[in-house]
Design a binder for these strands. Structure first.
Lengths: 231, 231
DNA sequence: CCCCATAGTGACCGACCGGTCAGTAATGCC
DNA sequence: GGCATTACTGACCGGTCGGTCACTATGGGG
């Protein structure tokens, strides 16, 4: 069977397209710019993709699939029961950091999807995702209340929305940065703040110690002022 | 001076344009759709606006100016010193509710600016705004720490970003809703959660009582569970 | 009533760009 | 080499709008 297809053509096209789409959005991106960057002709583009939209869809679906895998890995029932509150806290941090790390790596195209730039018809994916995170958060919350980790006078549905919102916010912040930010630091501060508002009194004393300890380890020493000591 | 301009023409155009832009974004909006909706000809459009972009800019600037006025009204130095923590909390709530109310009223075009839909070149306005809110939050925080309202082991810069983020998040949530949401309820829950993580121990006891009292007033009574009692 | 300045009209222009297709190059099989 | 088949090229087509301009409508002043 004659004329072997250049095996790099498709990959080059996808890479070029991702860059161009990330820079201009779907509507403003020109097929010709993509093909020029990939070093192939316009016709070659249409050998690999049905249309410009089709190309964009393939890229987005790829990113979303990998992102979904990232999120799925942190589900409540995927984790072994933690030995302690500290361990729980650390495992949550690790999971969030992993997620944010992925987002940072793919910030170009993710930013385009999130900001909906250029008439992207995939904003619904973002919403579906937020929904998923929200449900996951709500499950965590209810479980946390059951075992006495969290205050039992919260409205899980509303607080779950806030938590999901904070996550989305972190993502938006991070992919906006021109330089790699201190992802773990940001995640810790966010989780810390959220957690302090949620923990039952008994739990919060323990976490106070943990967080203070971490802070002393991570930063230059400063006069510690724990909240629990004045209770 | 002959031929008086129809005084409604410009207003009709602006209204029509806002609707069309809100629905389609800048790039995908057609000037002809705007003029049809306004009931004038295409030529009339170009009597009032230099270009499609110019029209969009005028609309956006109008909204942003009113929004800025809303934010400015809540600045630290604009407020009389509150008589109590409860009064402070309530004044913050009132301010946030007013802001969110405005956003809800203008959700169409605001949504378009926020989601950057259709190649809107005004995403920088959103960022500038976030920056402003962030600085304002940071000033509040530092002041709050000084007077012993907040814990003094927080990083004002980072926490301010979180607070600003939560505000932006609230806005994004609210303008996304198909029906008018319980704006005040959402605002209270958000501020409550944030505040609990920030207050110094002495302050938090007071607020616990206030919030619990408000909750009893606002909702059906439920068994109160204050955090302070176990401290 | 005429003049003319300005408001308003809409057919038209032209740039732009997604998509096509006739043609060409590369490759394996005989 | 000839032939079939597939990869690839790029000039071109056609639709879509943003923007223009020759024209008409409308009103006040003399």
């Amino acid at each position: 069977m004659p004329r072997i297809a250049d095996p790099r053509a498709r990959i080059d096209l996808l890479r070029a397209a991702e860059a161009i789409f990330a820079e201009n959005g779907l509507a403003a991106a020109k097929v010709e710019d993509i093909t020029i960057r990939a070093g192939v002709s316009k016709g070659a583009f249409y050998l690999h993709f049905k249309s410009k939209q089709d190309c964009f869809r393939q890229i987005v679906e790829g990113v979303v699939a990998r992102l979904a895998a990232c999120v799925e890995a942190g589900r409540f029932d995927e984790c072994a029961p933690p030995e302690s509150i500290e361990a729980l806290f650390e495992s949550r941090i690790a999971h969030v950091v992993e997620l944010l790390e992925f987002c940072w790596q793919n910030r170009g195209i993710l930013g385009m999807i999130l900001t909906g730039g250029g008439g992207t018809p995939y904003a619904y994916l973002v919403d579906a995702f937020a929904e998923r995170i929200e449900q996951q958060s709500e499950m965590w919350l209810r479980r946390g209340v059951e075992v006495g980790l969290y205050r039992d006078d919260i409205e899980p549905a509303i607080v779950a929305r806030l938590i999901a919102g904070t996550h989305e916010r972190l993502v938006r912040e991070i992919i906006k940065q021109p330089r790699r930010p201190d992802i773990e630091g940001w995640a810790r501060q966010a989780l810390d703040l959220l957690t302090r508002g949620l923990l039952s009194a008994a739990s919060s004393a323990v976490v106070d110690r943990t967080v203070t300890k971490n802070r002393e380890r991570d930063e230059r020493p400063r006069e510690p002022r724990s909240r629990a000591k004045a209770g």
